[in-house]
């Protein structure tokens, strides 16, 4: 079974040289820590920066330089700043190759819910709806089940949707799943996790091939 860093490490393997990548808040942010060697990617944050670097060294925080999670960051050489309309032109215009975001629920036809729990706190969708409506390649980083042990990998989402039919891949602490033809397809198992465990934790339609390889996290 993977921890949050393990999920981020596995997703980092999906990065390709030359990609512009938008990372959501939470587990997706950790992906930046595991860029494979020999690969150059640039991170976009929708509040207005391309070329986002690591957190600043203590004492060098700049209140005018933050990411979309409102965390202080740094800018790498070659970075660019822009306004919010241009930022979403990059996103809507499909200039960003990969979007990684968290979710509360994902359904077998690629619907995603991650912005609202009716009756409880409504924080808002931020940039998530624009991102999922337009990105060509969306990977969801999430835990397979909620705190009550219920599956978040569902036939249909129960929470208000963020986007429809948009998620291509889901990486959880248990597995890598591809979404196509109205079903989750089991691609890989996390180290030490059995196919039976994954089947038990998945409520949506799951297609299991005869051989399910274990993730290779060595890099």
């Amino acid at each position: 079974m993977l921890d949050k860093n393990g999920i981020a490490r596995r997703i980092a393997q999906e990065l390709q040289d030359g990609y512009y990548v938008n990372l959501g808040i939470g587990i997706p942010t950790l992906v930046a820590n595991y860029i494979p060697q020999g690969i150059d990617v640039e991170f976009q944050s929708e509040n207005g920066i391309l070329g986002m670097g690591p957190f600043p060294i203590e004492g060098n925080e700049d209140p005018d330089l933050i990411n979309a999670g409102k965390q202080t960051i740094t800018a790498l050489p070659g970075a660019a700043y822009f306004d919010s309309a241009m930022s979403f032109a990059m996103i809507r215009g499909r200039h960003v190759q990969l979007t990684v975001l968290g979710a509360m629920e994902v359904s077998q036809n690629g619907d995603i819910a991650n912005w609202k729990i009716p009756g409880k706190m409504v924080k808002g969708m931020g940039g998530a709806m624009d991102l999922v409506a337009s990105a060509e390649n969306i990977i969801v980083a999430m835990m397979h089940t909620n705190k009550a042990g219920e599956s978040k990998i569902l036939p249909e989402c129960t929470l208000p949707l963020t986007g429809v039919g948009c998620v291509k891949k889901v990486v959880t602490e248990l597995a890598v799943l591809e979404i196509k033809d109205g079903a989750f397809h089991l691609l890989e198992r996390a180290p030490g996790v059995s196919v039976e465990q994954i089947i038990a934790a998945t409520a949506g339609k799951l297609v299991v091939p005869e051989v399910v390889p274990e993730m290779n996290l060595l890099d």
């Binding site: 919010s84 309309a85 809507r92 969708m125 931020g126 940039g127 624009d130």
Partner: peptide, 25 residues
Amino acid sequence: PQGSLAERCRAGGAGIPAFFTPAGY
């Protein structure tokens, strides 16, 4: 949605009364 909010402000200032976007469909 954040991108729609940004574009709606831009459109307001640019004399574009409305626009179509995939976000939120």
